[in-house]
Each structure stands twice: as structure tokens, then as C-alpha cells.
Simulated assay, not measured.
Amino acid sequence: MVTEVTRSTNTNPTDKQQQKIPVTIITGFLGSGKTTLVNHILHEQHGRKIAVIVNEFGEIGIDGQITIADDDEQIVEFNNGCLCCTVRGDLVRTLEELTKRSDLDAVLIETTGLADPAPVASTFIVAEEIKSKFSLDAFVTVVDARNLQQNLKDSHEAQEQIAFADIILINKTDLVTPEDIARIQQQLRELNPIAKVYHTEYSSIDLSLILDTKAFELEAKLEIDPSFLEDLAHEHDASIGSFAVTSDRPIDLNKFMLWMNDLAQSKGEDLYRTKGLFYAQGFPERVLFQSVRMLTSMRRDRLWQKDEPKLTQLVAIGRNLDREEFVKGFEKCVA
């Protein structure tokens, strides 16, 4: 989706017409904290007007619904496809539309957790209609400190995201020991010896460290992947997929958490990511649920709006998941 976030700015309009619009691309494996970082950026008073493009792998966009934005927003859905392959044409068309705006200061792109960063970068280098108006500022990769080892084992994309990064955020450092962080730092240096590395909790960081850094260097990326400008097709692991379940009946959260805990115990290594907004029994607000492998969290979100249909939307992403089995388990949680 694209969300245009209105902020005040003192930039001279004439200067803007002569400058390319900087683009920061946020990558990272499923559940690493990318959307949290986007919300952190939008929450800060940075004095910029930023367009945010959010791409989700699942059928339903949950992250887009919880991204902070001002009231005057334009939304374009980039769901059930990946910017590195099936929806790259949508990205080009959206960026072309953004070039019509004279007041835009920057673009922020959050890729799916399964995106290969190289094809996304090549869009800005190869596409003539894009490279004349936009400049890649930096690839910021968010790393889940708690699940890094398993993510690297399971996913080639997780390795590529780190290797391709200009800036790496070791996130969720509050969930691991200092010794773990030291080992993670060493492993990241083996995959990427030149990226700047910062430690974060809840993806909170000084924006000057990740925005307007001019950290992207084409020559360095070609050393990592000499073929990335060849615009090759990217294929995802066929065993990894996603599906969504919905319900317009209230959900018993106690039943749901018991079922989800059992599911995490039995399929925790294959259930990479679940996330959903719940119409929960006894709650006047939407309830946001998220899980990353064995770790789960749940919190109250905003109140339901008067003219808004009350729905539960839950997305699951993982390897060799049985959709029918998942749906049957979920249906038992209906109040």
C-alpha cells in the first residue's frame, strides 16, 4: 500500500525540482520489526513529507492497517505478491504517480519478509522512468535477534537481506543476552563486513542514522550480486506460502490462545509468522495479535469505528502448512 504522510517542511520548492527523491528500503525476515520501524519513523517529528509503500506477502494486508498515518492518505494495495517479482510493475506505476507530486520529500518502502532485495534495487537502476526521478538512499535490514539463527537456516532470502544491507538493525536485543548479541554481530560481519550495525529494542533508533544517509553504493552491490542488474526473475521456495482466515463472529481469545500455543508447540519451526486483527468477545477495541515462531504477543488496538464492519482477519505464513487443518482449528475459537 502507499500512504502519503503529511508533515511540515521548509525545503525550497525550486531546490526540490532539481533533486531526486531519496528512497529508503526496509527489509528483514518475517516478524523482525519492519512495520514497527516504519511506525517509529512516521511518529517522529522529522519535518518531511514521506510516501510509504508497504508490500505484504499474505492475502490480507494487516501491516497496512496498523501503520500510523495522517488523515489525508492515499492507499494502493500491494498484497498477495512480492515487490521482487509479481508486483514490480505495480511499484513502477506507483512511483510514476508519486513523481507528479511537487511536495514529496522522501519515499519509504517496506518489503515483504520474503523479498530478495536485489530485484527491488534493480528497479531503481534499470527502469528509465524511475531512475531519473528517484535515488536509492539506503537498504535498512531489520534482524530478529531471537530468531536469527533459525531464519538464516530456513531462508536464503534472510541471508540475502543481510548481505545486501547498507544498515543493519539488530532488533529485539531485550530478548537475548549480551553474549548472544556478540555472536550475532560476528555472524552478521561474516555475511556483510561493511554495513553499519546498530542495536535496537522495538525498532527505535535515531532517524539521522537511517534516513538521508546516502549509504547505497552500486559498486558494492555488484560485488555481492554481479547479476542483479540483469533483471532476472526471482522465485520463492514453493513450500513456503500464506493464507488468510476471516470471521464476522466474535472470537474467544482464551480458546484462541490455547489453540495457538498448541499449534506453536507442534509446528513452531514451520509456522514462521501469524498476524491478525481480532473482533474479540468482550473487547470494545480491535485486538492485534502477532507471533513469530514460538513467540506471541497480543494488545488492544484502537476502538472500532461506528460504520466499520467488525471482522477478524488472521494471516499465517510458513512452510508446508495445512490450510484446512488451520481453518478447522480457528473455527473452534469462535465464541
Rank of each mutant, 00 (worst) to 15 (best):
H46L: 09
E96D: 14
A264I: 07
T27R: 01
L263P: 00
G31C: 04
E325R: 12
K133P: 01
T296N: 08
D90N: 09
V334K: 14
F78T: 13
A165I: 07
G33E: 06
G329R: 04
T111V: 10
N39Q: 09
E77A: 14
F216S: 13
P193Y: 04
I62K: 12
K153I: 11
E201F: 06
P117H: 08
R101P: 06
A244E: 01
E308P: 04
G31T: 06
T141Q: 06
L136A: 06
E223Y: 08
H46I: 14
L288R: 01
L288I: 15
T86D: 08
T112I: 06
R273L: 10
L311V: 11
I194K: 06
I109C: 09
T6D: 11
R273Q: 11
D212N: 09
E308I: 13
S155K: 02
Q149M: 09
A195E: 07
K133V: 09
V315E: 15
R183S: 12
E325N: 13
A118L: 03
T35S: 13
L271E: 12
L253T: 13
E219H: 10
L258G: 01
Q65I: 04
T123E: 05
P13C: 13
E110G: 05
N254K: 08
I75M: 10
T36D: 00
A195S: 13
I184F: 02
E235T: 13
E325L: 11
E223A: 15
L258K: 15
T177M: 09
R7C: 08
I181Q: 12
L271R: 11
F330M: 09
V54D: 08
Q265K: 14
K16E: 02
N254T: 14
Q149N: 14
L314K: 09
S247W: 02
T123Y: 00
Q290D: 13
G64I: 04
D206Y: 00
N12R: 02
K16R: 15
I60C: 04
L314T: 03
S135D: 09
S8I: 10
T35F: 01
S247Q: 11
L253W: 01
R189C: 02
K20N: 04
M260N: 07
L191V: 03
A335N: 03
W259Y: 07
D301W: 00
A163L: 00
V334H: 04
A182W: 00
I62G: 13
E223R: 13
E59V: 02
E4T: 05
C82D: 08
N320A: 05
D180T: 15
A220W: 00
E77S: 12
T24P: 09
E285P: 04
H46Y: 07
V107Q: 03
K20F: 02
C84T: 01
S297Q: 15
S266A: 15
C82W: 01
A163G: 05
T200Q: 11
L152V: 11
T173I: 15
P13T: 12
E179V: 11
D248L: 00
R146H: 10
D166K: 00
L169Y: 02
G64F: 07
A233T: 13
T141R: 06
